[in-house]
Design a protein around this nucleic acid. Structure first.
Length: 295
DNA sequence: GGTAGACCTGGACGC
DNA sequence: GCGTCCAGGTCTACC
């Protein structure tokens, strides 16, 4: 099946995909040279399919092998729209960014969208797997989850969807700890999967709940393994930008940008972007740092 | 309300 | 090879 989905301009697939590290995590596959994004995801029917997305004028084109029922087709459209924030209005952010030399490239390249998975469950697990580890560690853990416990698509056995909450809920802690090598994060992921699978926690419902940031943050922080950094990261994925995902890298760059390399804390990071108000997170995320973060 | 120490893994380093 | 140390957020227990 082939679909054309309208994207609110300015939209650029490469900019959206490369907005953060998610494109390096399975089941995303990004081919920079050809500008092709491949993602393997699951529909509500349980059917797993591989979607291929390319830039098209004012839109993206979506291709998937085989035919789809009309309701499946509209589900795919909705999920890809969510994944790429196709309908997001970036005008207010770009308006502010235009006044700031350190954000000039944001307007030029049409930045501001942040790549997300089909489900908030997948993004929440991935976020837990970014905490207290190296990026290589995150890639390894996600790869293990998808390869060992993911569901293969019908068209290609190599393409697997990220395991669903139900898939993970059925596992034991030992498998997650020692097979997927999640270490001490295993019980966090397991308890999250179980509360989502049982219906006790309606994670997907948060996408469109229209809750104020404070309430959303309170609910995210209630999840074991989600602290201030992870909650802010997920809030960004939910289009709430009034918290900064402060990690050790944030301390480094803010320290070099404004404090001459002197150690800084979370307060200084928040203060540095306070003037951006509701767009704080995006201003931080896309800031053109003079310090690369390398030592 | 703030904080020390534990948690787990892989990579860097010294022997 | 092999052992030791370290980086990376969050939780729990304790002030």
């Amino acid at each position: 099946v082939n679909l054309a989905l309208a994207a609110r301009p300015p939209f650029n697939l490469a900019s959206t995909v490369r907005s953060h590290g998610w494109w390096q995590l399975q089941p995303f596959l990004w081919d920079e040279a050809s500008g092709l994004l491949t993602y393997t995801g699951r529909l509500s029917s349980g059917r797993v399919l591989e979607v291929q997305v390319r830039d098209a004028p004012g839109a993206v084109s979506v291709h998937s092998e085989g035919s789809l029922e009309p309701e499946e087709e509209s589900e795919v459209a909705g999920l890809v729209t969510w994944m790429l924030s196709l309908d997001q209005d970036l005008a207010p952010f770009h308006e502010m960014a235009r006044q700031e030399p350190k954000l000039e490239h944001v307007v030029e390249k049409g930045l501001g969208r942040i790549l997300r998975s089909f489900t908030l469950f997948e993004d929440t697990v991935k976020t837990i797997l970014t905490t207290n580890t190296s990026w290589a560690g995150t890639i390894r853990m996600v790869e293990a989850l998808v390869t060992v416990f993911g569901t293969p698509s019908r068209s290609s056995a190599q393409c697997r969807a990220f395991p669903s909450a139900t898939d993970l809920a059925a596992l034991d802690e030992e498998s997650l700890r020692h097979v997927a090598r999640l270490g001490y994060r295993a019980p966090y992921v397991l308890s999250l999967a179980r509360s989502v699978a049982s219906g006790e926690l309606d994670l997907e419902g948060l996408k469109a709940a229209g809750l104020p940031t404070g309430e959303l943050r309170r609910r995210l922080l209630a999840i074991k393994g989600i602290g201030p950094y992870a909650a802010a990261n997920l809030l960004m994925l939910l289009d709430h930008y009034d918290f900064i995902p402060v990690d050790s890298w944030a301390f480094k760059v803010v320290s070099h940008e404004w404090y001459g390399g002197q150690p800084v804390g979370a307060t200084e990071v928040e203060e540095a972007f306070a003037r951006w108000g509701d767009w704080k997170g995006l201003a931080y995320w896309f800031w053109n740092w003079s310090f690369s973060g390398e030592t």
